[in-house]
Simulated assay, not measured.
Amino acid sequence: MVLNVLEGMRWGEAQLLAEKIDNARFDADMLLAEILKVSRDKLYFERERTLSKEEERVFKNWIARRSEHEPLQYILKCQEFMGLTFYVDEGVLIPRADSETLVETWLRIVRDEEQQGQEEKIKVADLCTGSGALAISMAYYCPKAEVVGTDISSRALEVARQNAVSIGVEVNWREGDFVAPIRGERWDWIISNPPYVKKADYLQCAPEIFREPAIAFLGGQDGLEFYRRLAGEARTLLKLDGKILLEIGWDQGNDVCNIFQEQGFTTHVYPDLAGRDRVILAR
C-alpha cells in the first residue's frame, strides 16, 4: 500500500502507540520529516503528497526500529545540544538537555572572571567526553579555551572528532581511562559528565537506555565511584586556582559535596531549569 504523507503520519503513530513508545506522534513525524527533508511543521503542507516506494520502505523500516525501542536519535543520527547539531550513534551516549546546565554554568563563571580582568587562555579537560558535546560546545562558545577531551572508548573519540570537524572547532582528543590522559599537567578547569547512575537504578531504566553504552551510565553500586576517583587525584591535576565542574544526579548533591569537601575543596551546587541539583563546582 502506497501512503500519502498524512496517512504515513497516522500509520506511524499507531504503530508506535501499539508498542507503548512515548511521544509516538512526535517520533513518527520526525522520522517522516527526515525522509522528506522538510521540518516537522511543514509536514501538513505536504499532507497529500504520495510517498515514493523508496520513501515508504525507509519509513516503515525506521518505524520498525523505533518500535523496538531504538532511540530516535540513533535512527536520525543526530542530536541538538547547546544550539549545535551533533552526530550520534550506538557508540556514544546521547547528549541530554540536562547537561546544557553544565556548559551554561561554566560559560557564566568564565565570563564573570573575564569581567574581573582574567583574559588569558584557559586549559580545560573534559573527561568521559563521549560524542564531544561538552568539549565542543565549550570550544565553540569560548574561543580562548584550549580544550582537551578524553574517553576510554576509541569509537566514542571517532564520533567526537567527526563532530569537531563538522562544527568547526579544534579540540585535542586523548584516549584513556578517566584521568589517565591528563596526568602530569595542571588544568584551569576539569569538566565531566561522568557515569553516575546506581546499578540498581540502571536496571529500572526505560528500554531505550539499554541501547546506549552502559559504561556511560554505571557509576558503581552507589553511583559515586567516579567522583571519589577524581576527588582523590584532583589536587595533583589542578592549578592553584583551578576548578572542577561536574554533572550530578538530582539526589547526589550532598554526597558529592561531602566527597570533595573531605579532600579540602569548597563546593557549590547549581540547579537545572527544573530546580533539581544538577551541577557541582569544587575549588
Rank of each mutant, 00 (worst) to 15 (best):
V2A: 11
L6G: 01
W11L: 12
G12Q: 10
E13T: 12
L17T: 09
K20R: 14
A24W: 11
D27N: 15
D27M: 09
M30T: 14
A33T: 06
E34L: 06
I35P: 05
R40Q: 15
R40G: 11
E54K: 13
F59K: 06
A64K: 15
R66G: 05
S67P: 02
H69V: 04
L76K: 10
Y87F: 14
E90T: 05
P95W: 01
R96T: 02
A97M: 08
E100K: 07
E113A: 06
Q115T: 03
G117M: 08
E120H: 05
G132H: 03
A139T: 00
P143M: 02
G149W: 01
G149D: 02
L157S: 07
V159P: 15
Q162F: 12
A164M: 04
A164F: 07
R174I: 10
P181W: 13
I182F: 08
K199Y: 06
Y202E: 12
Y202S: 07
Q204R: 14
Q204A: 09
C205L: 12
A206W: 02
P207M: 01
I209C: 04
I215T: 05
L218Q: 04
L218T: 04
G220I: 00
D222K: 07
D222T: 07
L224V: 02
Y227T: 04
E233L: 07
E233A: 08
L237H: 05
L238H: 06
L246I: 01
E247S: 02
G253I: 06
N254C: 07
C257E: 15
Q261M: 10
Q261R: 12
A274C: 11
G275R: 11
R283P: 00
